[in-house]
């Protein structure tokens, strides 16, 4: 009985959670003129919006999905590589100015991004990288996403230090301690980092807007923006259709990641 109640509660909250999403999915199969005038189910189901939206931006939408996937996957690799290294250093190693550097790292989180947008653009423009993916990717390999570094610092600090010490007594250097002992234990944090990096990169609009100009290098959010006209009539139907389509990969990634999140610990040998 209790279990049934728990399920009912979870489902009820869940429906509230996904109502806007359901609305979007239903809208994407409605004739265009019904999207705002008819709040219920469509009078006729149609896939027109998908057909129109797929080709509307000049290239098959698959290209934009591919661009986004490319940027997102490389970003994941970059963040996993650079943020774990920095996090390990901050969490476990002793070095000069550690506190100061840590504070500096946190400070980068606190400055609103709006004011560093322009100086950063000037920097990348002078390096000749505008209209390439490089300005989107290079920062990921240099641990610029403080969020993840800080996340992993917190996770490593949550792990018992006795493990490192035991390994150190066995003659392991810091690098071996890091790769053999800590990395496997950090699996949940790594999965979170990978999933969030993927999702946030996938959704990012502003950086691609500034750095990618030609249509063939568009990522999904830029392509979606191409349906919008804030002054006149936006193409909502195709926009919703392609939005639904572009949600699918991230949803699958999340589904996949959360499974690893759950199974991760069982095999990690914390016991």
């Amino acid at each position: 009985m209790k279990r049934v109640l728990a399920h009912v509660a979870i489902i009820a909250v869940g429906i509230g959670m996904i109502y806007p999403l359901l609305w979007m999915v239903v809208s994407s199969v409605k004739p265009n003129d019904e999207i705002f005038s008819n709040p219920g189910l469509p009078s006729a189901w149609t896939l027109d919006n998908y057909v129109v939206g797929w080709d509307a931006v000049g290239f098959p939408f698959l290209l934009f999905l591919g661009n986004s996937a490319l940027v997102a996957v490389i970003s994941v690799v970059g963040n996993l590589f650079s943020c774990t290294l920095a996090a390990y250093a901050f969490a476990r190693l002793e070095f000069r100015f550690k506190k100061l550097l840590f504070a500096a790292m946190l400070a980068t989180l606190m400055l609103p991004f709006q004011v560093i947008l322009v100086p950063q653009y000037i920097l990348f423009n002078n390096l000749g990288m505008v209209d390439t993916f490089l300005p989107l990717l290079i920062p990921k390999f240099l641990a610029v996403d403080t969020f993840f570094t800080f996340l992993m610092v917190q996770f490593i600090r949550g792990l018992p230090r006795t493990l490192d010490d035991a390994a150190a007594i066995d003659g392991c250097g810091p690098f071996t301690v890091f790769t053999r002992i800590l990395l496997p234990l950090m699996r949940p944090a790594l999965v979170v980092t990978a999933a969030f990096t993927f999702i946030w990169t996938w959704n990012d609009f502003l950086s691609p807007l500034l750095y990618l100009n030609s249509r063939e290098s568009y990522t999904v959010p830029l392509a979606l923006n191409a349906f919008l006209d804030s002054e006149g009539a936006s193409q909502w139907g195709p926009m919703f259709a392609m939005s639904c389509l572009s949600l699918l990969p991230v949803f699958l990634i999340f589904l996949f990641a959360q499974r690893h999140l759950v199974n991760g610990i069982a095999t990690s040998g914390l016991k």
Partner: peptide, 24 residues
């Protein structure tokens, strides 16, 4: 050594624009 990528990123990509904004 573990900190190297972060240091480069910090100095090259973040710190420059941050100081620029402070001066601005």
């Amino acid at each position: 050594m573990f900190l190297l990528p972060w240091l480069i990123g910090m100095i090259g990509i973040t710190l420059g624009p941050m100081i620029a904004s402070l001066l601005l």
